[in-house]
């Protein structure tokens, strides 16, 4: 077992357990904290995949910005308990079907991928240096993917205006 393999199984186990914790917690505050743990484990996996740029943006943008937004809303609404008294529209049978469907999806993915032969990562040092270089990513974003980058800025502007309009108090 080399370091990459140990790292993969450790980070993968942390990510899966933390994600299970997210959907198992009653308190949304604990869910958000566990999701940050899961994101940290995924950042570790990105490092193992020679993608330090993705790992750093994962920590800064996801764990640092988006999760703070979630925490802010959880604290603002102060809704710490899940209402069980409400009549459920789909009922317990519907939820059981949903759980079974999710397990089936996981089983299907694992079954399908286990039937394929194992595909190994290349170990060419030049290729690895190429994909882990932040300047390469920057050049590709601002040349090949420049249009998508500009569209993203419009998307963010629209969502910002939309969030302000939707959350505004009506007079």
């Amino acid at each position: 077992m080399d370091l990459n393999t140990i790292g993969f199984f450790v980070f993968g186990a942390i990510a899966v357990l933390a994600s299970l914790g997210v959907i198992g917690q009653r308190n949304p505050m604990h869910s958000v904290m566990l999701l940050i743990v899961s994101f940290g484990a995924l950042a570790g996996l990105y490092i193992l995949l020679d993608a330090p740029f993705s790992a750093v943006t994962q920590i800064i943008i996801y764990a640092g910005a988006i999760m703070v937004l979630f925490l802010f809303v959880v604290m603002l609404l102060n809704a710490h308990t899940e209402a069980d008294a409400l009549p459920q529209v789909i009922g317990p049978r519907g939820m059981q079907i949903g759980a079974v469907l999710s397990v089936l999806l996981a089983g299907e993915v694992v079954w399908g991928l286990s039937r394929l032969g194992l595909t190994w990562f290349g170990n060419d040092p030049a290729t690895i240096a190429n994909i882990s270089s932040v300047s390469r990513i920057g050049i590709a974003i601002f040349t090949t993917h420049a249009f998508a980058f500009e569209v993203t800025s419009i998307l963010i502007l629209v969502s910002m205006v939309g969030a302000v309009v939707i959350a505004r108090r009506e007079h």
Partner: peptide
Amino acid sequence: MVSLNHYLVLSGIL
């Protein structure tokens, strides 16, 4: 050794 399949299975589980 970790293959691409390992990562895809982990991703599917998540």
